[in-house]
Write a protein that binds this DNA or RNA. Structure first.
Lengths: 341, 341
DNA sequence: TTGTAGGCGTTATCAA
DNA sequence: TTGATAACGCCTACAA
C-alpha cells in the first residue's frame, strides 16, 4: 500500500496514465521513451505530447527494479571532516555522475552498528567505495563473499576487491632523507599508525627505514588538528626533537599551534612536516613541507575502477598505486637549493 | 528482465527462497522480519534460521516500491571543494542517518544539463536539500510546483520551501563597526555578490550600510583562494585600501597570499577579514578575523526540517536564521581590548 | 496464526 | 508496428 503522506519525490503520474492519454499501450510508451524498439513517427508524437502534458518522469524505483540495477554507488568514509576525504569524494562524484551513477554517502565515525549501516548501503547501490579505516576487515571480507563490487582505498591489497592508494613508502624515504640532509638527528613521528597496513603505517615504516633509531613514534588519539596539538605539546615540553614528522597535514597543523603556544620557532627550534598537501598547508605560517598526494585523481580512478567491476568489463581485482610528490616549503628549515611552492 | 551482469549489490536471495526454506509463506516471512503482525514464536524461529542460512537481506528496491518511499534524501551543492559545504554536509548526513535516511549527493559546478541532473535526483529521494547557488531559481520554483519536499539553504525565503541560513546583516554591521573602530577609512569589499539575495549579498549590504561610500565593491570570478588572490593583487597594486573585507575566508586567504607576494604586511599595511571561520582561518598567519557561522548545525537543522516536511509532521514552510559570532584575531589589526581566539 | 493475491511502476518478451 | 503479459522483490488487506 502506498503511503500518500510520503510520495516519492515528484512522481505521481505513471506510465499507465500516459498510455491512456496517448491512446496506446504502456509497452509503446516505454519504447517511445527509451528508443528501444520500433515506434511509428506519428505514435511517438502522441506519446511525447502526453508525456509533456502530464509531466511524466519514469519512476526510478520502477526502472531500477525492472533493470536490476540501481545506477548508484556508495561511498563509505570514516568522517567527512578534513579536506582529504572531501577531495577524494569530489573526484569520485564527478566521474560517477559522468557515468550516470548517483553517489550515496555514509559516514561511519561515531556510529553504532556500523556493519548494519554499511550492509544497508550495499543493498541500495551497485557497488561500494570504502576508505581503509571506515569498515572493519571482517566486514570487508563478508562483502566480498556476498559478491559486492568493491573498491577499497588507502590500504594494502586484499583479495576479491580492487584497492587503490597513493605511494607512501618511497615518498616517506625521500622525506626522511631530505630532513636528514638538513642535519637533524633527533626525530619524532607524530601520529603513529593506529592500524597496520594503512597509509600512515606505510609512511611510518618508510621514514623509519631511513632514520632507524633516530626517530621515535608518538601516538595521537586521532589524526586531527586537536589531537596533534595535544600530543605535540606534551612531546615538546618533555623532550624536544629537532624535527617532527607528522602522519598528515592536520596533525602537523596541530603541532605548529603547539609550538607557537610554547613560544618555539618553527623551523628554528623544531622542524615540522605534514602529508597530503591540503589547502591549509600552503597557508600555514610557516608553510608546511609535505607530500602531495593526488586526492581528486584517487577518487576519479576509484569511480572508473568500480564502474569496470559493475559493468563486468573486468572481473579480476586490480591494485593501483598513484605517485606522490615531495613539496618542500618553509617548515622543515632553510634549504636554499630546493624550489619552494 | 534482470541483467545478471549487474546484480544489485549483495542481493540475490529473495523472500521467496526464504519462505520456501522455512516452509512458510512470504507474508509470514515479511511479518516475522518487520514485526508487523502476529507470528508464532516457533514460526519466527524457523524464519530467522532460514534468513540466517541464506544470508537474506530484503531488497531496498522492493521495499521502497512497496512502501512508496525511498528512505533517502538528496543534497545539491555547487561544489564540494572548500570546507563550508563539507561541514554543512557533515552535519546533515549525521542527522539524516540517525533518522534512517541515506544521503545522495550531487555537485552541479561545471556540469551541463544541471536541471536534468537535479530532477533525476529528485526522482530517487523523498526530499532535497539545495544550497542557494546550486540550482537556478526557475528550477526551484518548478520543483516546488511538482511537490518536491525542499529545504533551501543560504538564501532568502521563497514560497513553498523551507529556507535556512545564518545571520548575515547584523554580523556584517558588527564587523564593519569593529573595523571602523580601528580607525580605518578606506575599505574594499573583496568578492562582491555574484547573485542577489544570497549570503554574500547580505554581507555586502550589511557592511555598506555602516561604511557607506567608504567601501568599494571588488568582484572576484568565484569565491575561491585563487580568485581572491588575483583580485586582491590587482587591487593592492592599483590603490591600496586600509582594510579588505572579504566575502568569505577562502577569498581572504587569497588576499593574504597576495599581500605577502607584494611584500605588504597584514595588518600593518592592510587589514583583512574573512567569513565562515574555516579551519585554515585559524592557522593562517596572521590568523584571520572572521565571522563564525554554525555550519554543522546548519546541516543538522536542514536534515530535521526536511524530515518534518517528508513525514508530514509539518506542511507550512518555515524560514530559520541561525546566529553567528564575530571572531577577532590578528588580521584586522592590534585591538587590545578584544579577546582573541 | 497463517496464506492468498493484488499492487507498487517499470522493462522486455512474444505473439499478433 | 503494436499490445498483452510475465517478470523484478516486497508489503499488506483480507480470507481462511
Amino acid at each position: 500500500m502506498k503511503a500518500l503522506t510520503q510520495r516519492s519525490g515528484s512522481m505521481d503520474v505513471t506510465i499507465y496514465e500516459v498510455a491512456k492519454r496517448a491512446g496506446v499501450s504502456i509497452a509503446t510508451v516505454s519504447r517511445a521513451l527509451r528508443g528501444t524498439g520500433p515506434v511509428a513517427a506519428k505514435t511517438r508524437e502522441k506519446v511525447l505530447k502526453a508525456v509533456e502534458e502530464l509531466n511524466f518522469t519514469p519512476s526510478r524505483l520502477g526502472v531500477s527494479l525492472a533493470e536490476g540495477r540501481h545506477a548508484a554507488n556508495g561511498v563509505v568514509f570514516p568522517d567527512l571532516a578534513g579536506p582529504y576525504y572531501t577531495e577524494v569524494l569530489l573526484g569520485y562524484e564527478e566521474v560517477a555522475s559522468e557515468l550516470g551513477r548517483s553517489v550515496v554517502i555514509l559516514s561511519t565515525k561515531g556510529r553504532t552498528r556500523v556493519n548494519d549501516l554499511i550492509k544497508d548501503l550495499a543493498g541500495r547501490v551497485d557497488g561500494l567505495l570504502v576508505f581503509g579505516h571506515a569498515a572493519p576487515d571482517p566486514l570487508i571480507a563478508e562483502l566480498v563473499r556476498l559478491g559486492v563490487r568493491l573498491v577499497v582505498i588507502s590500504r594494502d591489497p586484499l583479495p576479491g576487491a580492487d584497492t587503490l592508494r597513493s605511494e607512501n613508502t618511497a615518498s616517506a624515504r625521500a622525506l626522511a632523507e631530505h630532513l636528514a640532509g638538513h642535519g637533524y638527528e633527533r626525530f619524532a613521528f607524530l601520529g603513529a599508525p593506529l592500524t597496520s597496513g594503512d597509509d600512515v603505517d606505510e609512511r611510518w615504516r618508510g621514514v623509519r627505514s631511513v632514520l632507524g633509531g633516530a626517530i621515535e613514534a608518538v601516538a595521537t588519539r586521532e589524526y586531527t588538528v586537536e589531537c596533534g596539538f595535544d600530543a605535540a605539546r606534551a612531546l615538546l615540553k618533555d623532550r624536544r626533537p629537532e624535527a617532527i614528522v607528522c602522519s598528515d597535514d592536520e596533525v602537523a597543523l596541530g603541532a605548529l599551534l603547539a609550538a607557537e603556544e610554547l613560544g618555539l620557532d618553527v623551523p628554528g627550534d623544531v622542524a615540522v612536516t605534514g602529508w597530503d598537501d591540503i589547502m591549509a598547508a600552503r597557508h600555514a605560517r610557516p608553510a608546511l613541507t609535505t607530500v602531495r598526494q593526488p586526492m581528486r585523481e584517487l577518487g576519479a580512478r576509484a569511480a572508473r575502477a568500480l564502474d569496470e567491476l559493475i559493468t563486468g568489463v573486468r572481473d579480476t581485482p586490480r591494485h593501483l598505486i598513484l605517485t606522490t610528490e615531495l613539496v618542500v616549503r618553509a617548515s622543515c628549515g632553510p634549504h636554499p637549493q630546493e624550489v619552494r611552492t
